[in-house]
């Protein structure tokens, strides 16, 4: 499976869950690997790369950690976009 497809799937999963359910890293990996029929480790690698690049972030709201797509406002504050 190419990386781009997995990336798109991860974003799709997170967009769909936005505002409804906070997803943990583990949840995203499970859902993506089931829907795409790929190994969990492959999804994990792509997910971690997205986090490392700052395209995704860990969040700590509601007393537990989850993975989220950062807002533009946050990325601007961080100086990651102008």
């Amino acid at each position: 499976m190419d990386t781009e497809t997995i990336k798109n799937k991860i974003f799709e999963i997170l967009e769909k869950a936005k505002g409804k359910k906070k997803l943990k890293e583990k949840d995203v990996i499970r859902i993506a690997s089931e829907e795409l029929n790929v190994e969990k480790d492959d999804v994990k690698k792509v997910l971690r790369d997205l986090i490392e690049e700052g395209k995704l972030c860990y969040s700590y709201t509601g007393g537990a950690s989850s993975v989220e797509i950062p807002s533009e406002e946050y990325l601007r504050e961080k100086g990651m976009i102008k």
Binding site: I51, E52, Y58, S59, T61, E68, Y74, M80
Partner: peptide, 17 residues
């Protein structure tokens, strides 16, 4: 207020928003 997403790139820990 409650914290949130704040952190350093790649890490999910070490910074409390």
């Amino acid at each position: 207020k409650h914290g949130g997403i704040v952190g350093v790139r790649g890490y999910g820990g070490g910074v409390i928003g």
